[in-house]
Design a protein around this nucleic acid. Sequence first.
DNA 1: AAACAAGAGGGTGAAAACACCCATCCAAAT
DNA 2: ATTTGGATGGGTGTTTTCACCCTCTTGTTT
Lengths: 221, 221
Amino acid sequence: MKQQQKIKVALADDHVLLRNGLASVVDGFGEYVVLFQADNGKHFQQQIRAYGEPDIVLMDINMPEMDGYQTAQWLKEHYPLVMVIALSMYDSENAIIKMFKAGAKGYILKDSEPAELKRSLDSVRQKGFYYSELVTGRLIHTINKLGEANAPKKELNSLNDREIEFLRYACTEMTYKEIADKMFLSPRTIDGYRDALFEKLELKTRVGLVMYAIKNGIVTV
Amino acid sequence: MKQQQKIKVALADDHVLLRNGLASVVDGFGEYVVLFQADNGKHFQQQIRAYGEPDIVLMDINMPEMDGYQTAQWLKEHYPLVMVIALSMYDSENAIIKMFKAGAKGYILKDSEPAELKRSLDSVRQKGFYYSELVTGRLIHTINKLGEANAPKKELNSLNDREIEFLRYACTEMTYKEIADKMFLSPRTIDGYRDALFEKLELKTRVGLVMYAIKNGIVTV
DNA sequence: AAACAAGAGGGTGAAAACACCCATCCAAAT
DNA sequence: ATTTGGATGGGTGTTTTCACCCTCTTGTTT
């Protein structure tokens, strides 16, 4: 009887060990039960067809094949009642915003305590969202930026393939000239990529680019 | 009957979710049972006194209070029969060497598949060690370095507090001059720190320092 | 057809990062 | 008592990075 009242949770994360940890903790809460697990977005789509709709999904952002943004977006369109809580390794303002734009109802870090995980599940179930201090703080920062006069074309950045390729090289000990060679571009163009990223990511130095790339899973450390 | 023949495994890791994942996977193997879990080295010392000696310990390297190096070292002295498998977030040559020097019998990454975790447990149990390709590759690199003529005083680096503090600042967008101010030192001295690190870590650029710091848990991303 | 945005790239100069030199002080080891 | 070695920091010069200027395509929009 009580069994049927349990909240169904699905997990999407390519790190098997961590996913198992989530599963055992979620099951341990009692009111929640793990309906199924997936390695990535593609796998998740198959699983949801096989097992049916969960109430809540704990969704990793950085996954192979199909990442958390895409999967959350897909869920929003095809299963609008399913609530997504984003799971991230790092505290990244951009990731937070992109996941909420993709329909996520909460955002927690992978090194959270089980208590916070439970808070997020409870909150999403009861109130439909979970806004931690982390999230609130980042969102306030974004709001403040929107108020600035010099914010003409903030299309809410998503980097293109070339920029991402550049970012990966920027995380090595190569000079920009060497990166230019690797990418078959002029050093000037690389200069342009860098400056464009500085602008849209609000950074000033190459170290800033490196930290950004790591926090956003663009490079795997 | 069979129960008593199970290999006793202990876990030391401050990330609760991942630790739970390890526990459920290890228990799931059948031949292994998790004897106890600990948040850090200090906690681990208490637990081993309370629960007795495990056969194998899965030991995280970066923990608060007392880290994996220290804890492995302590185990080597006080419980020499306990076999340690180092658990690391990243693939870092230095971390591997330091853990093996502290007596570890194996080294695996936290995003390993359960199959590899099992391989490492089986191997350590049966052969007393687990040398993956990852480990072997890194060790060969080290061996090769030892053969070089220009390797006079390779004391096998451990960074001092000042260097670590500097490294943390190096992972920000501060210039070296600004770092010098923060650390109440001359820019020249900072220059020296940087060059010393370049030398002993075999790096050439600040980006290299940043990547090193991250891979070794000196900065938390 | 004209306007416009995006991608590639040139030039210049200042600032930061890197390389290699050296001196001093102080504490610990021989 | 002298030497060694670490931590600190000065000088000088080159290379890389960063900032801000600009042109010229090409493709799309209007």
